[in-house]
C-alpha cells in the first residue's frame, strides 16, 4: 500500500505536471529549432509568436462564446484552435515578408537576424498588449478535471490522490498528435524532405531545384502552427498573461539547446529534460521517504534540493551546464 501511495504521489506531483509542461516546452522548442535549422537564426520573437497565438485563441473564444458555440465539457479553445492557427501563421508570414526576408536576401549574419528578431519581439509584444491588454485572462471553460483526486482516492482506497486536469490531458494528447503529424510530414512527404534537405545543405538544395521561398513559407507555416498550439495550451493551463511569454523564451531556448539545436527529436527530449529536472530538483522528498523507508529512517526537513522559488532558474542552470559540457546538446545539433 505504501508503495502504491508513493507511486501515486510521484505521478501526481512529478509525472503528470512534468509531461504537461514538458509538452508545452517541447512544442515551443520545436518551433525555435525549425526556424534555426532552415533560416539559420535564433528567433527571440518566438515567445511572442506563442503569445500571439494564445491571444488569437482567446479573442476567438470570446467570439464563439458570444455566438453560443461551445464544446462542453471540453473547453471552447479546442474548436477555435484551427482558426487561431491560421491567424498566427498569417502573422508569421507577414512578419517574414516585411522584415526577415530582407535580411535573408542580404545574407546577413545570424547575429543580425537575432537582433532583428528582438525588434519583432518588441513590436509583437506591444501589439499584443495593445490589443488585449496586459492583464490576466482566463479563457478556460468546460469540465475542470478528467480525474479528480477525491474520485481516485475513493476508487482505489489509497491515501494519496491522483488528479488529471482537463488542460493537462488536452495538452498531452494534442502535443502527441502534433508531433506525430510533424514527423510524418518531415520524413515521409516530398516537401518535408526538401525542407530537411534545404536545412542540411542550402546550396545543393538550390542545385537540386528546391524552391527556397517555398521552403521558407512552409517553415513559417509549421512555426506558426507550433507557436499557436504551444501558446494556447500554456495559456489554457496556467491562465494567459502576455508578460509570461517573454520569460518562457529562455526555458524554450534551453530545451532546444539541451536537445541539440536544429534537431527536432532533440527539441522534444530537451523539453522533457527541462520540465522534469525542474520538478525533480524542487520536489520535497520527505513524503516519498515516508512511504518508501521505515519510519525511523525518515529524515527531518523537506528534503528539497533547491527551493521552489528557483524552479524556473533551473532551466537556465541546465542550459549553462549543457553549454559547458556538451554545447552540441544531447542529440548532436548544429553548433551555432
Amino acid at each position: 500500500m505504501d508503495f502504491l501511495n508513493g507511486i501515486t504521489l510521484i505521478s501526481n506531483y512529478i509525472l503528470i505536471p512534468g509531461l504537461t509542461y514538458g509538452s508545452q516546452l517541447a512544442l515551443g522548442a520545436l518551433g525555435i529549432t525549425i526556424v534555426y535549422s532552415v533560416l539559420r537564426f535564433s528567433n527571440f520573437a518566438h515567445g511572442e509568436f506563442m503569445s500571439f497565438g494564445a491571444m488569437s485563441s482567446i479573442l476567438l473564444c470570446w467570439l464563439f462564446l458570444s455566438l453560443e458555440i461551445n464544446l462542453n465539457p471540453l473547453p471552447t479553445a479546442i474548436i477555435v484552435l484551427p482558426f487561431a492557427i491560421i491567424i498566427t501563421i498569417f502573422y508569421c508570414i507577414l512578419v517574414d515578408k516585411i522584415i526577415f526576408k530582407f535580411y535573408r536576401q542580404q545574407n546577413s549574419k545570424s547575429v543580425i537576424n537575432l537582433i532583428v528578431s528582438i525588434g519583432v519581439m518588441f513590436f509583437t509584444g506591444g501589439l499584443i498588449r495593445f490589443i488585449i491588454g496586459p492583464g490576466d485572462k482566463n479563457f478556460f471553460d468546460g469540465e475542470r478535471f478528467i480525474l479528480k483526486a477525491k474520485t481516485f482516492k475513493n476508487y482505489t482506497g489509497l491515501s494519496e490522490g491522483l488528479a488529471l486536469k482537463t488542460t493537462q490531458g488536452i495538452t498531452i494528447v494534442l502535443s502527441i498528435i502534433l508531433v506525430i503529424l510533424l514527423f510524418w510530414f518531415l520524413n515521409k512527404t516530398k516537401t518535408g524532405k526538401s525542407m530537411r534537405a534545404y536545412s542540411d545543405n542550402k546550396e545543393l538544395a538550390l542545385l537540386s531545384g528546391i524552391n527556397p521561398e517555398k521552403v521558407v513559407l512552409i517553415t513559417w507555416i509549421i512555426t506558426g502552427t507550433l507557436a499557436c498550439v504551444a501558446g494556447t495550451l500554456y495559456g489554457l493551463d496556467k491562465s494567459y498573461k502576455p508578460f509570461t511569454y517573454l520569460h518562457l523564451v529562455l526555458p524554450i531556448f534551453s530545451a532546444a539547446i539541451v536537445g541539440g539545436v536544429g534537431n527536432p527529436v532533440g527539441a522534444i527530449i530537451g523539453g522533457f529534460v527541462i520540465s522534469f529536472s525542474e520538478l525533480i530538483v524542487t520536489f520535497a522528498y520527505k513524503k516519498i521517504f515516508f512511504y518508501f523507508l521505515p519510519n525511523y529512517l525518515v529524515p527531518d526537513g523537506l528534503l528539497q534540493i533547491l527551493s521552489t522559488d528557483y524552479k524556473i532558474a533551473i532551466s537556465f542552470i541546465i542550459l549553462v551546464l549543457v553549454l559547458l559540457i556538451r554545447p552540441t546538446g544531447i542529440y548532436k545539433g548544429k553548433i551555432i
Binding site: F253, A313, I317, L319, P327
Partner: peptide, 24 residues
Amino acid sequence: ISLGLRSDYLAIATLGISEIIIYI
C-alpha cells in the same frame, strides 16, 4: 564559461546567467 561559444549561444547563455543572478 561561455566566451568560447558562437554569438547566438553566447547571447542566450548570458541572458540565462543574468536571469540566474536575478533569481538569487
